[in-house]
């Protein structure tokens, strides 16, 4: 593992992504909108009476944290890795004397930093305007950081194995659209998972999507009992292992098939 080279790559990608910041600001703005809509939907709906014990300011807090978590964990690998495989520029990755994983991580870090430069100020302004109510303890903050890091790892490796499917199919659009829909419905965007109808709720708690977005949010806002937090961490870790194994399998067998389209 060539860590020094990897770090240089990260710095280079960041500098080059910063040039296109208006593009990423627009992207980040677009991703903020669906959670923002449901922030307003649920604050309006809970005005007459709290829903599942949540008051309007608590919904504001839930969705503002969710916007940040969603941006931090968002998987960009479909176009940073998937398109590279499709277009054939993977060749230059493979020639470098370090793991191609660094290329994926480099663009991941670069993209996240550029987008945070937009999302954090906007969230702060929204927080000032919309007045969230967030009661949290230091333990919850620490647990949230752990949940958030493994949520990022989970979403990253999950996106990575999906992106590696590009070795076989030149277009994985349908699969990605399905994944977006599942994240929207089951990860806590359309509503906090506790508010879903019971059948959907069971599915949401089994599938990995809730552990990519909704789980770290709820750990911070304290909507979960400590037993639920513990179970959540176990399921999250299990899905993370599954995602890493899938990535290794798909990457290795894909690379054997790879025959460099284009240049």
């Amino acid at each position: 593992m060539n860590h020094r080279g990897g770090w240089a790559l990260i710095k280079r990608s960041w500098a080059s992504w910063l040039q296109y910041r208006s593009f990423f600001f627009v992207l980040a703005f677009g991703w903020m909108i669906p959670p923002l809509i449901y922030l307003f939907v649920w604050t309006t709906a809970s005005e007459p009476a709290p829903i599942a014990g949540l008051t309007p300011p608590q919904f504001v807090a839930y969705y503002l944290v969710l916007i940040l978590v969603n941006q931090l964990t968002f998987a960009q690998t479909n176009w940073t890795v998937g398109d590279v495989i499709r277009m054939g520029s993977l060749n230059s990755w493979l020639l470098k004397p370090m793991s191609p994983l660094y290329n994926a991580i480099a663009s991941e870090v670069a993209g996240k930093i550029v987008m945070m430069a937009f999302v954090v100020p906007v969230s702060i302004i929204l927080a000032i305007v919309l007045r969230p109510e967030l009661t949290t303890t230091p333990t919850q903050v620490v647990l949230c950081c752990v949940a958030l890091s493994s949520a990022w790892l989970l979403r990253f490796f999950w996106g990575l194995w999906l992106a590696c499917l590009a070795f076989w199919a030149t277009r994985a659009d349908a699969l990605l659209a399905l994944q977006d829909a599942l994240i929207f419905l089951l990860a806590g965007v359309v509503a906090p998972v506790a508010l879903l109808p019971s059948a959907m709720q069971t599915i949401a708690r089994v599938l990995p999507f809730y552990y990519m977005v909704g789980f770290p949010v709820e750990v911070l806002t304290g909507q979960l009992a400590s037993s639920e937090v513990a179970t959540g961490f176990v399921i999250q870790a299990a899905w993370l292992i599954v995602a890493v194994v899938l990535y290794r399998l798909v990457w290795r067998s894909g690379l054997k098939r790879y025959s460099a389209i284009g240049g």
């Binding site: 449901y38 939907v41 709906a45 829903i51 599942a52 277009r171 659009d173 349908a174 659209a177 399905l178 829909a181 929207f184 419905l185 359309v190 509503a191 508010l195 879903l196 109808p197 959907m200």
Partner: peptide, 24 residues
Amino acid sequence: IGLLNSLLNLIVGVLGLAVLFSQV
């Protein structure tokens, strides 16, 4: 793919409303 995308779009929209109106 277009058919799947369109159906997903509709299903997601309607399910979103169903979740909301199961509460209010």
